[in-house]
Design a protein around this nucleic acid. Structure first.
Length: 423
RNA sequence: GGAGAACUGGCCGAGUGGUUGAAGGCGCACGCCUGGAAAGUGUGUAUAGGUUAAUAGCCUAUCGAGGGUUCGAAUCCCUCGUUCUCCGCCA
């Protein structure tokens, strides 16, 4: 959520900023509702004040043993008037709230303007895509011989699920362990275990609700939702809390499965592991002082890049343009790994700085020693990395002519010293 | 799943319908006292919204959350949540 004061007082500038990312703010409607809100609030408060003072007087009169009947008669209709004023106020507030919850974050100044992903700005490339002297297979073909089975998963559940068995299942676990160890031991994150079913308040806090409900799996009639990313439970650790200055920054790393309905993506990436209803991800989350968030964003992205580097996977880093930027984000770097089978870079990590946007919804604050007051923190997160996509990227990039897959050096300790997945 | 008890400010804790945003204590901040400290002592010590040039003043809300009763609710009623105890079940 944007700062309501900013939205109120600087509506024109906010609208201009939002237009940059293709969001059309209804300035006139907002101004009208704001005017109504002000009047309704004034009315309600005025009646409230009167009721309070009248009631006090009745109390005094009663204590003094006077007859309070005439006093009661005087304010017969006050209650109704007050209720009416309050319900008017609530109507307006609800409308304003709905609008506010649907407004995306404002992009930082160095986010390139653009309409869609084609206008994202490449920041850097790391590693050389390997030249193969044989015909490359994609991970589905490679996986068929190594224990990756989509048909069995479809029988058990549906399309967009997978079963892994044997060495591939172990490799996925090894990747997860490797990432968790790297971030917790080398990068200063606290390993964290969180619920995979969350309530609606948590999803509102991080911005998935109310706007993106169709992307989620709903459980038990809406009592819970399956998490689409660990960002939700982990960031919500600080919901409704005031963190002491000395404790900042908070850095969490969590491994969780992620569940996405993929409504609206029918026909896209139907083959293979790229787009699944259920996948594993290691997520990095940072809660920082506002002035530190830009630096933290660079740092967090570098932590995710480190994983790709250690796994010897070529990638590029892109600064998402305004049109491709996520709803809650002020700035996002995507890391895209090279996929030989597709001869292109595909997203494997998304690292975002949300500014105070999530913090405001979460009421996540810190006590600023300079002011002594609770102020909103900044929140960030990034995949470090999406494990399923890492698995497929590793298979494809490190495949051999005979269909076996070389295990990168950094991972071998997690595979009992094994250096290759043999067919 | 069943039965019972509880939920008050940073913490502890008083308060069963009337000037209670809330006694008292602890903690914290500043001052006095002291050679310095402790003790003692004085003052202050929430969050959010509105109004405003103002983090001045004023108004409003907030005693787990949401509804209700009432002129008036921390106090009465209902629903929900959380914690604790006992029973059942269970990895």
């Amino acid at each position: 959520m944007l700062d309501p004061k900013l939205l109120r007082n600087e509506t024109a500038q906010v609208a201009e900023q939002l237009a940059r990312r293709g969001f059309d703010l209804d300035v006139a409607l907002l101004a009208k509702l704001e005017e109504e809100r002000k009047q309704a609030q004034l009315d309600a408060q005025e009646l409230q004040t009167e009721r309070n003072s009248r009631s006090k007087n009745i109390g005094k009169a009663k204590a003094a043993g006077e007859d309070i009947a005439p006093l009661l008669k005087e304010i017969e209709d006050l209650g109704d008037r007050h209720k009416a004023a309050e319900s008017r106020l609530n109507d307006v507030l609800t409308q304003l709230e709905q609008i506010a919850m649907g407004i995306p974050n404002i992009a930082q100044a160095d986010v390139p303007a653009g309409k869609d992903e084609s206008e994202n700005q490449e920041v850097l490339r790391w590693g050389e895509p390997r030249q193969f002297d044989f015909e490359v297979k994609d991970h589905v073909d490679l996986g068929a011989a190594l224990g990756m089975d989509f048909d069995t998963a479809a029988k058990i559940s549906a399309a967009r699920f997978v079963t892994l068995s044997g060495p591939l299942a172990k490799l996925q676990r090894a990747l997860t362990q490797f990432m968790l160890d790297l971030h917790s031991e080398q990068h200063g994150y606290t390993e964290t275990y969180v619920p995979y079913l969350v309530n609606a308040d948590s999803l509102k806090g991080t911005g998935q609700l109310p706007k993106f409900e169709e992307d989620l799996f709903k459980v038990n009639d809406g009592e819970f939702y399956l998490i689409p990313t660990a960002e939700v439970p982990v960031t919500n650790i600080v919901r409704d809390t005031i963190t002491e200055d000395a404790s900042l920054p908070l850095k969490f790393v969590a491994h969780t499965p992620c569940f996405r309905s993929e409504a609206g993506s029918y026909g896209r990436d139907v083959r293979g592991l790229i787009r699944q209803h259920q996948f594993e991800k290691v997520e990095l989350v940072q809660i920082v002082r506002p002035e530190d968030s830009a630096a933290a964003h660079e740092e967090l992205t570098a932590h995710a890049e480190k994983v790709l580097q250690m796994l010897e996977l070529p990638y590029r880093k892109v600064n998402l343009c305004t049109g491709d930027l996520g709803f809650s984000s002020t700035k996002t770097y995507d890391l895209e790994v090279w996929l030989p089978s597709q001869q292109t870079y595909r997203e494997i990590s998304s690292c975002s700085n949300f500014g105070d946007f999530q913090a405001r919804r979460l009421q996540a604050r810190w006590r600023n020693p300079a002011t002594g007051k609770p102020e909103l923190v900044h929140t960030l997160n990034g995949s470090g990395l999406a494990v399923g996509r890492t698995l497929l990227a590793l298979m494809e990039n490190h495949q051999q002519a005979d269909g076996s897959v070389v295990i990168p050096e950094a991972l071998r300790a997690y595979m009992g010293g094994q250096d290759m997945l043999r067919v």
